[in-house]
Each structure stands twice: as structure tokens, then as C-alpha cells.
Design a protein around this nucleic acid. Structure first.
Lengths: 203, 203
DNA sequence: CAGGTTTTGTCCAGTCTTGTACAAAATTTT
DNA sequence: AAAATTTTGTACAAGACTGGACAAAACCTG
């Protein structure tokens, strides 16, 4: 099967993710990325085809670890609201714990590439829409489970929630203090009637 | 006083603002900006010194027209809450009415340059902080004027508000529909206890 | 060991970028 | 009209980036 690659592809994607997270997509040229990865541009093109392709891989990798992920891996029967609260707590923590305050890679990417980048823009937009839809489903389930009143405007609330998520993520780049972020988040969640103390995980 | 400039400097700043708004700061090279402005790079450097300096001028120009401005030009005795509501309405409108859905230039700039650009980053951050402080003052005044209960956590509410503003502005790049944005905004405002019907401007 | 396959390093051409330098042009002031 | 001032066009040097071409190296399979 030919000559094996001299570098760890997975580790490379991780590094690339960190790099793009830090500096943004356009700021990471093939040259700088290759250097950072310890490979030549030749190997770069061979392994990843294009900067865009690597970005998408890096994005996937990022999304797999982001607090947002908690909303996708739905236990299906669990209460929604405590999960939501938990997610916001994790979000505030993640933003504040990062010494570089790079914010959320996905939000950064949307801000940078949406409406600008020919191919990446639409992909990010649809991801965004999907995220909103997922939240909408979750809220609908919360209504069905009696966690929210039946007259809840699920669509508006989902959008308000996503706004809050995006806002906090960007805010975290400027105000990287967990307590402060959490105060704002909790305040908003309470206002939306979505705040719920997490169940004490069986001690 | 020497040879007069062949181009309208003010109009040039306007065009530059539009361009940076559209494509982001780093995507606008001196070459492309100069071309767009109809001048040579030589004239560009002569008139604006640097790309960064022009950006700051463009940013000032932008900030002078943004809905956020409504919160700075405080009538000092007027009710705060209706003004706030009005501002959000304008924000949702502005985001939705833009056929290119470029979002808010300031928010875009924060997302792009904060933590990355040596000189512009800190400037944008302090602008951001000032904006939060302004909102905080406004809310404090609202408490004093009896529009909000005395026990209001002004600091948390101000941050929640700013999060909402930022979130909506970014959201507008993906969901450029006024009704949808406004539904989310109003929902959040109501939750925060900040929604107030605007006084009918004397008909 | 030969043949096939894949990675890797080097090289290239073409385009872009920045900031400066210098002379020509245009206009005001003396 | 001459001098001073400022803008403008052109040119330069040094460097970065892209994407592809090509040969050499390294490995697997028959």
C-alpha cells in the first residue's frame, strides 16, 4: 500500500484545529499550517487536498468536543432543562478557562466566513440552522414532557437561546471570567424560563 | 497649501467602511482598497497612513450610525426601557434589511481581530467594555427612575443585554428575517423584564 | 527481488503583498 | 513669475502565497 505517512494525521488535524481556532481560517496559510504541522506543503496537499478540506475536518473535530454537543447526544428520556442549564455552565467554563480567550471556533468561523467564503460560508450557515433546529426540537420535547407550559413559543425561544449561546461565546473573548459570564447566562436563562438546577448526579 | 486631493476623502472612508464591513479587515488589502477607492496605493498611504488607521476611521463612521448609538445619546430624562426596546427593534430591522446580511461591522471586527491583532484588538476590546459600561449606567438610571425594581442585578443584566445584542447581530448574518429576529429579541427582553412598548411619538 | 503505490522534498512560475523612494504634476503663497 | 507645498504615478526590493510538476525515497505485495 505504498509508503506510509511519516506524521500522525490525527494529531495534525488537532494542531490545525488549534491553529485555526486561534488565528482564524484565512490567517492560516498552507505554508504556516504545514510548518506548524512539521510537514512540507507537498505533504499537506497530498494528505488534505486543500485548506478548506482540512478546515472542515478540524471543525468536525471541534464540534465533537464543544458543549453544544451535549444537546445532540440526547438521552431521549431525561429532563431537558437541567441539561440545558448544564450546557450553559460548561460553555461559560470553557470560555473562561481558555488562557487565550479564543472564544468558540464555530462562532468565530461563522463570523469570519459566512457571506464571504464561497464554499465554507454556506456549510457553516447550514450547520447553524441545524443547531437552531436541534434546540427547537429539544424545547418541543420539554413542552411535551411538561417541563415548559404548553403555550410556549418554541420557535422564538429557540432563537433566543441560540442568540444567547452565540452572544456568550463571543463575549467570552472579551470578558473571560466564568462568574461574570455565568451571571449573565443564568440571568437570561431564568428570564426565558429555562433555568433548572441540575439534578445531583447520584452521589 | 499645495496640491488639493483629487478624491473626496469622506466618500473614500465611507466606501472603505462598506468594504471592510463586507469582507472583514484582513481581507481588505491596501491594494484592493485603493483600487476600490479609485486611488493609487501612493495616495492611500499619503491620505490614511496605514490600513489600521483607515479602519479606525471607518469604525468611527460606522459607530456613528449604528443603533447602539441610541444608547449613547441619552436624553437624560427620558424613560430608558422604551428606548432600549426601540434600539432592539432598529437592530433587528437593520440586520434584516441588509441584502448582503453583513451583520454588525463592530461585532464582526471583534470576532475577527480580538486576541489576534496587536493594535486593533485591544482597541476593540476597550470599545466593547465601554459599551457594557454604558448599558450598565443606563440600567442603573432605569432603577433610579423606578422603571426597574431596586433589587435589580444591574451588572448581570447589562452583560445579558450585551450578549443579546452581540448574539442577534451575529444571528442576523444567518437568519436575516426581521420578524424572526424580533421575536427572539422581544422574547429575551421580556424575560429580562426590559421590554416596554415605545411611547407613541406625538402624532 | 521486481513492480506498484504512496509519500516526500525540491523546484518553478505567477501572482500578490507591504512600505518606501523619487520625480512629476498641480495648486497656493510669496 | 518663482517658491513652497502637497498629491500623485511609477518604480523598486523583499517577501509570501498558491498549486502544480517532477524525481527520489520508502514501503507493500506478488
Amino acid at each position: 500500500m505504498g509508503r506510509p505517512a511519516k506524521f500522525d494525521r490525527d494529531a495534525a488535524v488537532e494542531i490545525a484545529m488549534q491553529e485555526i481556532w486561534r488565528h482564524g481560517f484565512e490567517a492560516c496559510s498552507v505554508a504556516t499550517l504545514s510548518a506548524r504541522l512539521g510537514i512540507t506543503r507537498s505533504s499537506f496537499y497530498n494528505a488534505f487536498c486543500s485548506r478548506e478540506a482540512l478546515f472542515l475536518e478540524a471543525l468536525e473535530r471541534y464540534l465533537a468536543t464543544t458543549p453544544d454537543r451535549m444537546l445532540a447526544t440526547i438521552p431521549s428520556d431525561a429532563a431537558v432543562l437541567p441539561l440545558l442549564t448544564e450546557m450553559f455552565r460548561a460553555l461559560c467554563h470553557d470560555r473562561a478557562v481558555d488562557p487565550e480567550a479564543r472564544g468558540c471556533m464555530a462562532v468565530n468561523a461563522v463570523a469570519e466566513l459566512t457571506g464571504t467564503h464561497e464554499t465554507l460560508g454556506p456549510i457553516l450557515e447550514s450547520r447553524f440552522q441545524e443547531s437552531i433546529a436541534r434546540i427547537e426540537c429539544l424545547l418541543a420535547r420539554a413542552v411535551k414532557q411538561g417541563e415548559l407550559p404548553p403555550e410556549t413559543d418554541v420557535k422564538a425561544k429557540a432563537l433566543a437561546l441560540k442568540s444567547l449561546i452565540v452572544g456568550l461565546n463571543l463575549m467570552g473573548k472579551v470578558v473571560p471570567d466564568e462568574a461574570t459570564l455565568w451571571a449573565a447566562a443564568r440571568h437570561s436563562l431564568e428570564g426565558l424560563g429555562l433555568w433548572a438546577e441540575a439534578e445531583t448526579t447520584h452521589a
